[in-house]
Amino acid sequence: MMSHRAALSFINWSYACFQVQSTDRVSNHAPLHFDLSIFDIFTTIKAGATVILVPPNLSAFAINLADFIEKERISIWYSVPLVLTQLVLRGHLQRHQFHHLRCVLFAGEVFTIKYLRQLMSQIPHAKYYNLYGPTETNVCTYYQLEEIPPEAVDVIPIGKACANTEVLVLNDRGEIADFDEEGELCVRGPSLMTGYWGMPEQTQAVIVPYPKQPSLSMYRTGDRVKQALDGHYFYLGRRDSLIKSRGYRIELGEIETVIGHHPKVEEVAVIPIAHEHTGNEIKAVVVRQAGSQLNERDLLPYCAKHLPKYMIPSIEFQSALPKTSTGKVDRTLLRQQHINSNFNGIKYIPISDN
């Protein structure tokens, strides 16, 4: 349940942070049930700017979407990283100058570094912001990117708290974490949800007392992060993406980052598959770059070079990954597809104990 007050708090912050002007032309790419659309519509209205509705069918044709951005003179773009990745891969961005595009915002999932670097090199005059926040808080941290070093392969920071928000990290002992100590990100402030409609137990599980002042409340995001010495937070993954396999604690996002950096990999999702003996098997579902002949014999040695043996997944190639209505990878459906595939003869490569 998101109140008008919570939405307005985000609107006021984003209006000031990104200096939205009446002359701006702001894309509305997000579905109206997705919280990204609050910025698209209401921050734009606050500025007296113009909302440019992006036809849904353009998302399937990146080259047409690139033409649309240029033709409509869009100055602020906001979407999930997947859309921007498709623009890099298939939008033929070099055909346009995008003189009007001054600000590129992205949120919802991790933006693969190799594609983000390409986007920034092809549209170098724009400012780029990584926005982070679950629906329950809208955006709670942000990070403005500068140049990405060529050797960088890790994820970019999710930045620092927005001006109207406080964030902190709780370690496994329930204490406020030190710098560089992993823990769960917690958020408090006026943009926080009221709760889950008709689900008081679920609400009480995540809306908990604020340690510094128990009369106040905060939201436990379920996201694992750590804070660097410069104050920026780094997203490490979901609590539920930290699994155990053969006795080892494994962060699935780390495997995705490694495989996603391979030059012939377009997309990857790593999922756990329950196994009665090992706890979980790890499966990487990979989409190849167009025209690539990448196969298991190429990718498994690459994984062995960059991952410890116990983190090397089995590999399956697909032509595309299933997506939710908001453009994110549908991991629930992907796992269900695998469960069903065990009965349909789809190849499965088990992990060797050796």
Rank of each mutant, 00 (worst) to 15 (best):
F106C: 00
G195I: 01
N64Y: 03
S341E: 14
A60Q: 12
L252K: 10
V104C: 02
K71S: 11
T135K: 11
T112N: 04
V26N: 07
S217E: 13
M120R: 15
S292C: 04
D40P: 02
A16H: 08
S217L: 11
A269P: 02
L307V: 06
L105H: 01
D35C: 04
N295H: 10
P263G: 02
L185P: 03
I123P: 01
Q213C: 10
G108A: 08
L307S: 03
E276S: 08
Q227R: 15
I346C: 03
R25K: 12
R220E: 15
I148C: 06
V169I: 15
T23F: 06
D35H: 13
M2E: 08
T203I: 07
I52S: 02
F343V: 03
A290I: 03
K244Y: 08
P149A: 13
F111R: 06
I11L: 08
Q213H: 14
H275T: 09
V206E: 04
H4E: 13
G159C: 10
I176P: 07
G222Q: 14
I123M: 06
L131I: 05
G48C: 05
G159Q: 12
R25T: 09
Q86N: 13
V104P: 01
V110F: 01
V110L: 10
G279Y: 10
G291V: 13
T326L: 00
V329H: 09
I315N: 02
A320R: 14
E296W: 02
L145T: 03
K244G: 02
R335M: 14
Y348Q: 08
L145Q: 14
S14C: 02
M218H: 08
E147H: 07
I52N: 05
Y310M: 08
A7V: 04
Q144E: 14
M199Q: 15
P150E: 15
E151F: 00
